[in-house]
Nucleic acid binder design. Sequence first.
DNA 1: GAGCACTGC
Length: 772
Amino acid sequence: MSGDSKSGEWECNDALKTWVSNRLLALLGFSSPEFVEFAIGLAKQATSAADVVGKLEEYGLAFSDDLYLFAEEIFSKVPWKVSPRKQKTYENEDGTTGSGKAVFEDQIEFIKESMLKVDDEMSIESPQISKAKSKLETLHEDWRTLPIYAHRDSLLKAIEEHQVLVIVGETGSGKTTQIPQYLHEAGYTKRGKVACTQPRRFAAMSVAARVSQEMDIKLGHEVGYSIRFEDCTSEKTVLKYMTDGKLLRELLGEPDLASYSVIMVDEAHERTVSTDVLFGLLKDIARFRKDIKILISSATPDASKFSDFFDCAPIYRISGRRYPVEIQYTKAPVADYLDAAIVAVLQIHVTQPPGDILVFLTGQEEIESAEEILKHKISGFGSEIPELVICKIFSNLPAELQAKIFQPIPIGSRKVVLATNIAEASLTIDGINYVIDPGFCKMESYNPRTGMESLQVTSISKASADQRAGRSGRTGPGKCFRLCTADSYKTKLDDNTPPEIQRTNLTSVVLSLKILGIQNLLNFDFMDPPSNEALLKALELLFALGALNKLGEVTKVGRQMAGFPLDPMLSKMIVASDKYKCSDEVISIAAMLSVGNSIFYRPKGEQVHADHARMSFHTGNVGDHIALMNVYNSWRETNYSTQWCYENYIQVRSMRRARDIRDQLERLIERVEIELTGCPNDLQAIKKAITSGFFSHSARLQNYGSYRTVKHPRIVHIHPSSGLADNFPRWVVYHEVVLTTKEYMRNVTELKPQWLVEIAPHYYQMKDVEDA
DNA sequence: GAGCACTGC
């Protein structure tokens, strides 16, 4: 990246940088361009040497005489005045620069609102294709009535004239399916492939299927899709739909995207981590590849942010087809939103014309209790009130139960769907006329200082509330009932949800960017930069894992690790398994861990049986990691039996996913020259491999069953779902800590303290692990 | 002795 040159008079000289780097090496044993800049930045802003020390301590460095000396020296060496350069990376309060706004906006054309129903979120399986016409004819007609059709020529002209174009179009405008076809017809595919990225696998698959139908060719020939575990493309493929994460992976192997002539980033407003990283990389690629076209497509009307980021790229607007949605607020604040939501459902049911209801709730538990209360209430209704069919949907609901929301209901009855955020963007239910929105969701946040994740109920943003409201206006005019006052909507809600990249652990992103040769990540052009703290934490961990050397450069181990689509700690565990000759077992464990926490199933009323089944995999107090391996192996022995899963209270879907991941890992280890070897009877080898990845997650027993993490001391507890919950080993290594009612370690295995010094001598000293 | 919103590689 060539981003450093613009920093103006504050560009610090190389001698200063070298000096700081050397001091950091002495102090931390680790340095990198990012740390150097961080330290210099601190010193610039500080008012005294003590201030520098304070800030360094805040960041997590232990106080020492050396640290103080360093602070004094750096404070005196770095000139102290307020930086004149635009600090885009630090404060980003007001993004409205105003000046550079869309040169293109006066050229915007609106066409008449078409009311036809075709959809790029779409359901290709719809059997409702007119019998009188051939399938193809119908498709072509749809295509001519899409709002985008009238824009074809002016859109192509705009793409021709500008390297980067921001396209705004509501869902239903047809942009996802049509633009790549236009580009193909205009000859862009002669110079290279056209990629169109989607945040979700299903969207990539179904849109590709739709387009291949429209073009009347076999899916996988000229039009194909590529997602994890499934590459449906061939040498012929010129229109390639793919997930954004998949393109990022491809970029690691082809940093200039030489085989592509156009990249269209669709659904950019969703701001997934992958999309955000792609933004920065594409902006850079566009600088030295003048022949590549970048299209950023978003459904948010306010696209100025995208335009500003891409150096005032023009904005092109395409109208969509939306029915009006009437929004109602409560007159007074509601005390209990669940209660209020239930009352609202009943009121709509009794007083409003036909049409189904969608209620947004925060999670499974809430949905299930709402379901119970509703059932109870309607049981008291007389026969003159039509039937109310209650459906629920959340991602952990088994697939066969999920399908129920699409089943037809008796004529004259009404459906109410209790849903999590899954119904906000990922999944569309037809026939919804009423939306009830209490205005909350569960959101993950990540604290880089403690490395802890927590999932908390939070108010949604205005953007999110509008998206939810829009769900009622898809097939006809809709109504949305917001369970807050109009005033609190206006004043209390943020405009936008903070992008995921600012709420997540960045270790894996940072490793990828380092592989791509980004020297200094603090200067990387993020649209909304994550905090320096989060970036530095990621660098520190990568150094500890041996993925980066002392100077912040990627090592051989780092390259091996980057070969796996996993969290770097898991990747390191696999790389280390080569040494301990247990890669066969370790990739199973890695696959099971990366599936997450949805393997064991614990239905209401059957908890005792479920817990009993789960404990049967823990024989011998082997620890949770080995137990996961036992689960996988037992399942494999039954030839991947679904019945076996039911009997053992295990989620089939999760197991199948684990199998997919494991298969992929098995293929990948070869590429980084790791041999597939097993050591079924040597649990110690396996545990040592685990420790090689997770040594920074170690904890020792305190009094009364609580634990203290070794490196950055915190009090934590073994999660009750762990096989070791009643066992209290003196030393443990854990997969993660989550904050719920307490700080719980999830997935725990016993450890010998001397392993820590043996495996990570750069991280632990004897004094850290001496038994007190 | 307790709870997983949603994606993705």
